[in-house]
Design a protein around this nucleic acid. Structure first.
Lengths: 338, 338
DNA sequence: TTTATTTATACAATCGATTGTACAACTTGT
DNA sequence: ACAAGTTGTACAATCGATTGTATAAATAAA
């Protein structure tokens, strides 16, 4: 196994030139003659030379690694965004390191730390639900390391980000319900005050007002937006005999819970109650009835997030130009609101 | 910004000792006195020292990075496995680099190459659908880099792997259908001959035989197992007026397509036709009727894959001990087969 | 022909941590 | 009190590539 090595010194030795020349030849530096470049490349192939990224990273200070922090990788939305990021990273010859925060603040802080230690060239992140203090990200910014946030962000941080127009998505959803005949629309929203949920709530309220309907606090219910929460909240309003003819939920899982409970109580959907969710989870088109929902453009979000990231990375000159992109959501109308 | 530095030399200078002593102190080397260790740690904290993993990786040859190759990150099964891997990697202070092959052979080869260049300490992978040549992985093995495969593997490669007992899963599924009264069971399987699908087909056939039923080739249909394939195949058998009372599909998406078509034709499920899928995709519990399916133990698979990986990593002594784990699937019985 | 100028390559330091070996200062045994 | 053994640090090479500067050779300008 003499192929243990294969460094630029190997190549240099074989050609009786120096390692620096080899390095420049491989990097297509104009200071090296075409002939030498060709000879170097030939030998490189011959001995199956593979550049050592670690050595390169140490000297050049560029690791060609992007750290990506998400609450969890096994949720459709996040894994789709990751896919979008990886797609573009690929093009630029970058690799992505995934870390999950599990929505825990401590983990998120540790992840940032770890990624910084790994000397990533930049970080792309979406906050966990507990995150209300942003010192760990401020540290990233202070170090001059490119940072781009997506979906779950904070206004107090002046950082480039890509988010969905949650307000608009909710507005359209509720407007659609009203146009379909609903007058008393229940809203499921998150307990924790995260930007995306407060925006959706605002969209809900404004759509009501714009249509001359009043906002009844009794119709706004809080939970953590899982399937179980949807079930529980729905059972609650049925027990209370609350008068309602539509539900707009901030999350698809919760609306699914509502659908299950309504069906089990023999309440017709969309006959008696119309439903709209948020997220366009894959299952929403498989239920009976299929569920109207708001698409979050996850792949596009990943793509644009990565684009924004590389723009920053490639323009250290005009630094600190934070670019905010707001994506238009798309209302996917299905049976549950017909 | 004098905090630009913060290296072991910084610490060494402040304490009037050498960098090597600092390095050993930080690594808790017994050659260093407790007192010195304490002083070093104190200064380290003071100047906010963060070890440079790159430098460490270059010198020690360990990058503390694991390369993970999956066909696509945004499929529930794979993202769950990734989550399982990340969970354990975290414990061992390792980071994972994700690469997607998009089921393309060329991409997969490139990904292996890129991960090797990034000097990962090992690779965890699941083949793409096109992969029939394994030279790229043989190269990994030859280099002595730990490799663990999961789910989609190849028998010809003598490598550690973690797979599901697809045969058993299929057998149980079909046996369950028969016990529920089915006599003519259609089987949807994949066009390409990938280990997991051929195993499932074998399980289907054996379950029929074991129950004294014959295997009718006319009942075995091929497609690429997407929703559309399920719809198409179901339309086909209905048109042919094929006599059948059950369908066992190698993938949940295809069985979902079947359910849609059957419902639209007014054929009662499970009354007239009983269905069983494979994969336990999240949506299978949300459909009407809910779908009986085989759970693939994705999180466990990720966890065990990572465990196997670290076992190999930490035992270079007794190298080349390939460990094969076969997980027992779990039949999740729901309404579609009652 | 001689002095500039360009071209191609060599030299050597460097990135930051790790690690084998050397060595000084103490301890211990006899 | 002296050889032998411990203990705690220092020294210096190293991992493999990058990069600023120096230098030799070749070409152009004077």
């Amino acid at each position: 196994m003499k192929n243990k090595k294969a460094t630029i010194h190997e190549i240099a030795a074989k050609l009786n030139i120096t390692a620096s020349t080899v390095s420049r030849a491989l990097n297509n530096n104009p200071r090296i003659s075409e002939e030498t470049k060709k000879r170097v490349q030939k030998v490189a192939k011959q001995i199956n030379y593979q550049p050592n990224h670690i050595a390169s990273a140490l000297r050049s200070g560029k690791s060609r690694l992007i750290g990506v922090i998400v609450p969890t990788a096994n949720r459709n939305f996040f894994s789709s965004v990751i896919r979008g990021i990886e797609d573009l990273a690929n093009v630029f010859n970058y690799k992505i390191i995934i870390s999950q925060s599990y929505d825990e603040y401590e983990k998120e802080v540790q992840n940032v730390e770890a990624l910084l230690n790994a000397r990533v060239d930049g970080i792309i992140a979406s906050f966990g639900k507990e995150t209300e203090n942003f010192d760990h990200f401020l540290k990233v910014i202070e170090k001059g390391i490119p940072l781009v946030l997506f979906d779950r962000t904070a206004d107090v941080l002046d950082v480039s980000h890509v988010i969905l127009d949650d307000y608009l998505g909710a507005y359209q959803a509720v407007d659609h319900l009203i146009k379909s005949g609903c007058r008393r629309i229940v809203h499921f929203t998150n307990l924790q005050r995260i930007n995306i949920y407060t925006e959706r709530k605002r969209g809900y309220e404004d759509a009501l007002k714009a249509n001359g309907l009043e906002v009844d606090p009794a119709l706004i219910l809080y939970g953590s937006m899982q399937l179980e929460d949807g079930r529980r909240l729905t059972e609650e309003i049925l027990e209370k005999k609350l008068d309602f003819d539509g539900i707009f939920s901030s999350a698809d899982y919760a609306i699914m819970g509502a659908l299950q409970v309504l069906k089990s109580h023999g309440i017709a959907v969309p006959g008696k109650v119309k439903l709209v969710g948020f997220g366009n989870e894959p299952f929403t088109s498989f239920t009976d009835p299929t569920i109207t929902t708001v698409d979050q453009k996850s792949i596009a979000m990943g793509k644009i997030t990565a684009e924004t990231f590389f723009e920053i990375l490639n323009s250290k000159a005009l630094e600190a130009v934070s670019k905010k992109t707001i994506l238009k959501p798309e209302l996917i109308i299905r049976e549950s609101s017909k």
